[in-house]
Simulated scan of single mutants.
Amino acid sequence: MRPGSLITVFGGSGFIGRHAIQALARRGYRIRVAVRRPNEALFVKTTGDVGQVEPVQANIRDTRSVRAALEGADAVVNLVGILHEAGPQRFESVQAGGADRVAREAKAAGVGIFVHVSAIDADAESKSVYARTKALGEQAVLAQMPNAAILRPSVVFGPEDDFFNRFAAMARLSPFLPLIGGGKTKFQPVYVKDVAEAIVRALETGAADGKVFELGGPETATFRELMELTLREIGRKRILLPLPVFLAKPLAAILQLLPNPALTVDQLHLVTLDNVVSEAAQKESRTFNGLGIAPTGMEAILPAYLGRFRRRGQFEQLHVTE
């Protein structure tokens, strides 16, 4: 693609989206940010020059708005996904049906370049509806756009993340942090700017066309180890309390009734499954390596945004604990 090409980014105002837009804007592309509520996404306009980034209204559950958002686009990035269901936002309609709709309309519009961001735990056979619909979304995209690039990140971290920030906030108030399933599940946290760079390279180079890339950071750690790292970064001592899945289930059933639940019953199906890059992806270079990216480690980034959770803020000495 040439600078000035128009890229439609569905879900561009989200965590990964805002960083992807920033990376695209630096390359000189024009970006159309397709979101349900464009008035709440006006901040993305500041990531580029005047008129370079423009939010538009689109709902991937609505064919007409998707079609309008794709008009004249040279490439498409689909970032839309949900962690839990609420109202009309259902896993099936958003992650499976929505992905199918965007790919189908992109094909009809003659768009030749398509990048779809999924999740490393996507699995058509999973007990989790989230994971199943992620896999169905991938299948739908590739059925319509065989040359599409599928990117599957592990847990994504960065200043606005919903992982380290959530548990750091919990540690500020709670005397313990729960380790569901004993905290043995492995993760490979990936820096959001690395994911954004992977999106750009998949658009530009064609190296990922028709392939499923698994994106994991340079470090693999258990959930317990990630909680220990979080506590070190915020200078607090808390009890790490193992919580068996059978005891967590009734708690999740209650929590999922909240507007932004920390845990749902569906998510419990995933907590005992490792969230890391597969051996097959490593052997076939379907990782950051295949895109020419050296992923960033957690300890180079976490202090920059977890410092606010220390008792006296970012300037507190890390050896001081409470």
Rank of each mutant, 00 (worst) to 15 (best):
L257D: 02
V265L: 11
F246A: 11
Q256G: 06
E279D: 15
D274T: 03
P259T: 02
L247Q: 01
A304M: 08
A252P: 07
L255I: 01
T264L: 04
P303Y: 06
Q282H: 09
I254F: 15
V271N: 01
A280F: 00
N260E: 07
P303W: 09
S278G: 14
N260G: 00
S285F: 03
L270C: 13
S285N: 08
A262C: 00
K283G: 00
V265R: 13
F288N: 03
A262H: 02
G292S: 11
A280C: 00
P250F: 15
P295K: 04
L306D: 09
H269W: 14
G292Q: 09
G290V: 02
A304I: 07
R286W: 09
V277T: 12
Q267V: 04
Q256D: 04
V271S: 05
Y305A: 10
A294V: 15
L273T: 12
G290D: 01
I301Q: 12
I254V: 15
K283R: 10
H269K: 09
I301G: 04
P259S: 05
L258F: 13
V277M: 05
L306S: 09
K249P: 04
V265T: 15
T272G: 08
G292F: 11
P303L: 06
A304K: 14
A280R: 07
T264V: 10
L247D: 00
A304H: 13
